[in-house]
Amino acid sequence: MAYPADYRYTKEHEWIQVDGNIGTVGITDYAQNSLGDIVYVDLPKVGDAVEAAKTFGSVESVKAVSDLFSPVTGKVTAINEELKDAPEKINAAANTTWLLKVELADAKQIDGLLTAADYEKFTNEETGH
């Protein structure tokens, strides 16, 4: 699996793609694969504040529930409504199935996140490969 080089990543397995001052957030392919079949995504509302490294929601597979951690601080400008009825889209295409969009409070926060290469190294360490 390839992690897009223009995204940044967290150790909690979220990705963020930044365009101007808007960040688009999803979970990584590694995360969807670890969770298995995803059946439920709990997201904040548009207008809610999210904070870097704090939980903003959860994602549930048949067998597990996992908190979602925000890569950045900011305000939610959109959530992916289609996940309410089709959360399995995350399993099918984690890299392109976004959860929410955030208006960044501080664009510099991105620099503190993992690059694709760093993230891949991190996941390889986690699985002991």
């Binding site: 298995g36 079949d37 597979s61 048949v62 067998k63």
Partner: peptide, 9 residues
């Protein structure tokens, strides 16, 4: 093995 080719399938 907990998941061979997808739990739901």
């Amino acid at each position: 093995p907990v998941d061979c080719c997808g739990l739901i399938a």
